[in-house]
Every structure is written in C-alpha cells, then in structure tokens.
Amino acid sequence: MMKPSFRGSLGIRHLVCGSCNGCEHEMNALNNAYYDITRDGWDIVASPRHADVITVTGPMTGAMRAPADQTVEAVPRPRVVVAVGDCAAGVGPWAGAPEAGEGAGVVLNASVFVYGCPPTPDAIRSGLEAAAELLSREDVSEASVSPARIGVAVWSAPVDD
C-alpha cells in the first residue's frame, strides 16, 4: 500500500570502504522485486549531492580514507550516516588487518549501525527506517553520540588454539 505521503522518503547513497561485497549483494537486493524500497519513496541515488542518507560498508582501507571523507562531505546536511555490516562497525574479520581501519561507520561517525555478516535486506531496511526517523527530528547533529543499533554482531573471531 502506498503511504499517504512521501514523508520520510530517502535518497540513499552507498559508499564501499573495503567491504568484501557481501554487504553490497544485500544492498542491491533492496532494489529487487522482493524488497523494492522504491515503494516507500526510497531510492539509491547516483550522487552524494542527491542523498539524505549515506550507507557505508567495510573496515575502511587506507586507500579509501580520503575519497570516503570527500564523499560524505558532499552529502548536504541534514544527513545521516548508516553503517552496514560488522566490518563497518569495526567488529568484522578484518579489524586489525594492516591496511584496515576501525570500521567505516566508526571512522565516518555513523548514527545508525546495522550488524550482520552481511545483514539481511530486512535488517538494512530497519536501519534506513531509523535514519528516516532521525531525519524527521529538529536536530540530527547529535544523533551519532548515541547511535541506533540494529541486530547483533555475527562475526566472532575463531578460537585459535
């Protein structure tokens, strides 16, 4: 059913910062006929300038640090950064690898963290709903101080003995 208005419609820009592309498979699924986020007035947009929300994945690599900062900065305010996946939250398998950072969502100050390896499309949708809710507030600037958390981390380092 169509919502009574497009209140809460989102332009979503996706930014990959060293993800294994597992999260990208699930981000792409949001566009397929089963999840079809366009029914809610949501759209994956081609430019950060068109976005309200920027979803970020991966542990953050050295090579992506500067391009990632520039991309987030290009999203007009008010904006919400949504971290997708355990890697982006800094708790994935590559945390501590020599060229991996603390998680794209941590580095880029995300206000919403969606856990999973990868998170399901439904979990990502919940994260986007949380982002829409934040954007409807008067002031989203403080949202990253106590971010919303969707689900629990799936990755746990294997016992190495």
Binding site: V16, G18, S19, T61, M64, A97, P98
Partner: peptide, 11 residues
C-alpha cells in the same frame, strides 16, 4: 584497483 586492499594475507 587496490582500494579494497585490507592486508588480508598478512592478517
């Protein structure tokens, strides 16, 4: 490419 280089092998 190499923007997704995490240092997997060293890890």
């Amino acid at each position: 490419l190499a923007y997704s280089h995490r240092g997997v092998e060293q890890h």
